[in-house]
């Protein structure tokens, strides 16, 4: 079964450039603003959208995404509303893949079967659930694959040769390579090491490999994009939103515009990646 994710990566391959994968937190700072941010992403150059599902205890996230999740929860965001955002976005855009990203408990409480049914109906294409390693595939990964939803797995620097096949098994859509051991938003390691890691993963799979955790600037995106099939940017986008919020959460400028401006710069970096390599 080909999904929107498969089709998108095929199209980009034909174009000869890597994907720009953009993460933002659903409901940050409020539902309406967040939906406008989401709708602005494709026009600014995002190829794949990671829609964050806020969770009270984001154990793998750094301070920026922790704060974004808290803002969203304070603004009344729930999983029901995050699914509604996907549905509202899908009414106007039928090609940009949506990957919902977060932690398992809200999905477990929503009910796995009900969630998958509603996710498919809302036009969601894939899932990244940080606290579901392959050992827990029966929880959500296998039901998701059965429902036609891609289950995108994280591979990390601690995923050695022995473990890589376990991680890649049942992974679909793309592989998300976490470029360092750590939480989201930490410093990006040496980009040449990232190239080696991507090559290592590619030796085991035909799936596209996207690299994230720590990518903050257009030039980093360009450097990563020269070896990876996609560049994931999250914390820096979340920061672009936080930067236009005052101490009491009031907006000092339009977050959707701030995100669009920032993402346009990243998109240029990504689009230059292969040109630079070729030139």
């Amino acid at each position: 079964m080909t999904t929107r994710i498969d089709r998108k990566f095929e199209a980009l391959k034909a174009e000869g450039r890597p994907a720009l994968v953009t993460y933002f937190m659903g409901g940050d700072p409020d539902y309406e603003t967040s939906l406008r941010i989401m709708k602005a992403l494709p026009g600014a150059g995002a190829d794949v959208i990671e829609l964050g599902m806020p969770f009270s205890d984001p154990m793998a996230d750094g301070p920026a995404i922790q704060a974004a999740g808290l803002r969203a929860l304070k603004g009344g965001q729930t999983l029901v509303r995050t699914l509604a955002m996907a549905r509202a976005f899908r009414e106007e855009d039928d090609t940009t893949p949506i990957v919902m990203m977060g932690y398992y408990n809200p999905i477990y409480i929503y009910g796995v079967d009900r969630f998958l049914k509603d996710a498919v109906a809302s036009g969601v294409d894939g899932l990244i659930v940080v606290d579901l390693p392959p050992e827990m595939d029966e929880e959500l990964c296998l039901p998701a694959l059965k429902a036609g939803v891609n289950f995108i797995r994280l591979a990390t620097p601690t995923t050695d040769e022995k473990r890589l096949p376990t991680v890649l098994n049942n992974t679909s859509g793309f592989v998300y390579y976490v470029s360092m051991t750590g939480i989201t938003g930490s410093a990006l390691p040496d980009t040449s090491k990232v190239g080696d890691a991507v090559a290592r993963i590619k030796a085991h799979t035909d799936l596209p490999v996207c690299v994230g955790f720590g990518v903050k600037t257009a030039s980093q995106a360009r450097a990563i994009g020269s070896s990876a099939d996609g560049v994931v940017v999250g914390t820096a986008i979340v920061n672009a939103i936080a930067n236009v919020l005052g101490p009491d959460g009031q907006m000092t400028a339009d977050p959707a515009e701030a995100v669009a401006t920032f993402v346009s710069g990243l998109a240029k970096g990504v689009r230059d990646a292969r040109l630079a390599e070729a030139g």
């Binding site: 793998a60 940080v130 606290d131 579901l132 390693p133 994280l154 620097p157 601690t158 050695d160 051991t181």
Partner: peptide, 12 residues
Amino acid sequence: GGRFVAETLMPL
């Protein structure tokens, strides 16, 4: 019970 942790921690 179970092992609901990030992939980074699984090998450890």
